[in-house]
């Protein structure tokens, strides 16, 4: 029987993963909730866990070739306090769980979880983050949007490990993020909205809009965003109606124990409208 392991190097981890199928456990803050049964018993994993949180070589956040690279075992709290962390991601991390969780939890864990309400994903979609995966023989880079395919489903192969997340250095003049949760902190999102915009001489050079918890993955429409590129900010009000309708047709929230479909959709569109209003203002 294959046992739980703590690899001592990335190399060792990848070799182990080439030999058997493991459940990768990083910060464990989601997995131990999912796998717990009764206090005092060992959490039950269907595949043996591979505990990678101690891999020092993946615990870093640094600037390299004009990009920000975040190693897979870097804690959210470390990312939060790094001077180069994009503002939008800082805002998001501050709304994630609590300090106790943020010290243990990692960005790559949040990505691998691929929950529709995963907070960091809104920021990563907006920033066009790249996910770097390794197996024993190869490295591949995949965009976050391609990496997450469905609710809790990703493109990661069983022998692959997320080793880092690569983000562009912040260049946006304005960022907006709102997480609507049932309380001020320590809560799961009912709706999340993020917007980034880069304006020069009143002209929109870049605009990005993303919604969380209203679709099976983070919702972002490049087509709608493109319709705004190059426009003067004063043109936004007259486009507002079409933009709202465009997103309204894409948003497909659910009813659950935390909120309802109508509220999620209404609030998501309200947040978008407030963001659009802030552009022309």
């Amino acid at each position: 029987m294959v046992e739980a392991r703590i690899p001592h190097s990335l190399q060792e981890a990848l070799i182990l993963m080439s030999q058997a199928t493991y459940t990768i456990v990083n910060g464990a803050t989601d997995l131990l909730v999912q796998k717990r049964s009764w206090s005092g018993t060992i959490p039950k994993f269907s595949q043996p866990p591979l505990y990678i949180r101690g891999l020092k070589e993946l615990d870093y956040i640094c600037e390299r070739s004009g990009m920000l690279e975040i190693g897979a075992t870097t804690s959210l709290e470390t990312i939060l306090h790094h001077p180069k962390t994009p503002k939008i991601l800082q805002h998001i991390i501050l709304t994630m769980a609590s300090p106790a969780i943020r010290h243990q939890a990692t960005l790559s864990g949040n990505i691998q979880n691929a929950s529709p309400a995963g907070d960091s994903l809104v920021g990563l979609y907006l920033l066009d983050a790249s996910i770097v995966l390794h197996n024993r023989h190869h490295e591949r880079v995949i965009s976050i949007q391609d990496f997450i395919v469905d609710v809790r489903k990703t493109m990661r192969e069983a022998d692959e490990l997320i080793t880092k997340v690569v983000l562009p250095i912040d260049k946006f003049s304005q960022c907006a993020y709102t997480k609507v949760g049932p309380r001020k902190t320590d809560a799961i999102a009912k709706v999340a909205f993020g917007g980034l915009i880069d304006i020069e001489n009143d002209r929109i050079r870049d605009i990005r809009i993303a919604f969380g918890a209203v679709y099976k993955t983070v919702l972002r429409s490049r087509k709608i965003e493109e319709s705004l590129m190059g426009k003067d900010r004063s043109a936004v009000p007259e486009m507002k109606h079409v933009l709202l309708e465009g997103y309204a047709s894409l948003i497909q929230p659910i009813d659950d124990q935390r909120s309802n479909r109508w509220y999620r959709k209404t609030t998501a569109l309200n947040l978008l409208e407030a963001f659009l209003d802030s552009i022309s203002r």
Binding site: P182, R183, K184, T185, D186, A187, I188, Q257, R258
Partner: peptide, 26 residues
């Protein structure tokens, strides 16, 4: 703040993640 409902007798908010009580920030 505190929402609890049942659906066909089944309580929907079954843990402290879904049954929301105030934190210091609230």
């Amino acid at each position: 703040l505190e929402v609890m409902r049942h659906h066909q007798g089944k309580i929907q908010q079954r843990n402290l993640t879904d049954y929301i009580i105030p934190t210091a920030a609230d």
